[in-house]
């Protein structure tokens, strides 16, 4: 029971990170129907910017605590958002109206480009860092096993919940959110009604990238080490989360992230850690085959 609880706590933390990345996939898919394969790389860049941000904070004497985290999150969100914007503007926007697979191929190109650009600029070796929040407390002990919650886990879950709540409000209640939903339904009609479609799509990428940056910062703090390659696996896992929850659906992305966190942690905890990634890939394949609309997605009717 104690072991189970501990795994559950770890899983929720991890699930929060995946959920934040998954939102980026789901929003972009919802609005322009493409899989933004480079989104994992955006997350990775967010983690690198956070790493450097924490180092600068340390240099400036903002040693630890809430101030550093808030500053780094803001900086990482801003600068990663530029990546989101620039990618859409240069690699995807010119392809609207090209053949179906063109954006996906372009996205794979962006992904390779960014991965190797970071490798060139920052080196291939793993980078330790982001040890800002230390310590924790014992929740309870049972069967000689301490169930431990770290302060960092609490920070991660709280930040995620706050962001997701804010974000849901943004989509549900602001003009921007309304425009996004309009574009999702029918881009041509939305543009006829005066919605600036280009701007709306750009903002979608910006928001997705900002959330991925937060996920990157938290990934860095949680694992304490990153490298240029983390975006690939984390990206696929988050995409799996988005598909599992129902691609296009925001609550779906959060739910999917949580489920993927649970599956990964419990698989590693109870079966074998070697095959934990296989489990996630297998879920991706199975969901796409048997329930491509995911748990909360709406079915699509094929127009002939």
């Amino acid at each position: 029971m104690a072991y189970f609880t501990q795994q559950l706590i770890n899983a929720i933390t991890l699930g929060a990170i995946y959920g934040l990345i998954a939102i980026g996939y789901t929003m972009v898919y919802g609005i322009i129907g493409m899989i933004n394969f480079a989104h994992g790389e955006v997350f990775m860049i967010g983690a690198f910017i956070s790493l450097i941000g924490f180092m600068i904070c340390a240099m400036l004497g903002i040693g630890s605590g809430a101030v550093a985290i808030i500053l780094v999150l803001l900086v990482a969100m801003t600068f990663t958002a530029i990546y989101g914007w620039a990618i859409e503007r240069t690699a995807y926007r010119p392809l609207r109206g090209s053949f179906k697979l063109a954006p996906l191929i372009s996205a794979i190109g962006v992904s390779i480009l960014l991965q190797n650009y970071v490798q060139l600029a920052q080196g291939a070796r793993p980078k330790p860092g982001g040890h800002v929040v230390e310590g924790g407390f014992n929740l309870f002990s049972a069967d000689g096993f301490d169930v431990r919650v770290t302060w960092l886990q609490i920070v991660i879950v709280v930040v995620t919940v706050v962001l997701m709540a804010g974000f849901s409000w943004l989509i549900a209640a602001t003009p921007l959110g309304r425009q996004q939903r309009a574009c999702e339904q029918d881009m041509k009609m939305a543009s006829l009604l005066g919605v600036n479609v280009d701007r709306t799509i750009s903002l979608t990428f910006v928001m997705g990238a900002a959330l991925a940056a937060v996920a990157g910062a938290m990934f860095l703090m949680y694992y304490g080490i990153i490298d240029f390659f983390i975006g690939f696996l984390a990206g696929i896992k988050a995409f799996t989360a988005a598909v599992l929850g129902g691609i296009g659906s925001l609550p779906g992305a959060m739910l999917g992230g949580l489920l993927i966190g649970l599956i990964e942690v419990f698989w590693a905890g109870y079966f074998s850690s070697e095959y934990k990634d296989v489990a996630v890939f297998a879920i991706l394949v199975l969901v796409l085959i048997f329930r491509p609309t995911g748990l909360l997605g709406k079915p699509e009717i094929e127009k002939v």
Binding site: I35, Y275, V278, F281, L288
Partner: peptide, 24 residues
């Protein structure tokens, strides 16, 4: 039977599964 982009991702998943199985 899957749509083009889903097919792409599923094949990616299969590719990684095979590699991970060979690894483990």
């Amino acid at each position: 039977r899957l749509r083009g982009d889903y097919l792409a991702i599923v094949t990616l998943g299969f590719g990684e599964i095979i590699r991970l199985v060979l690894l483990n």
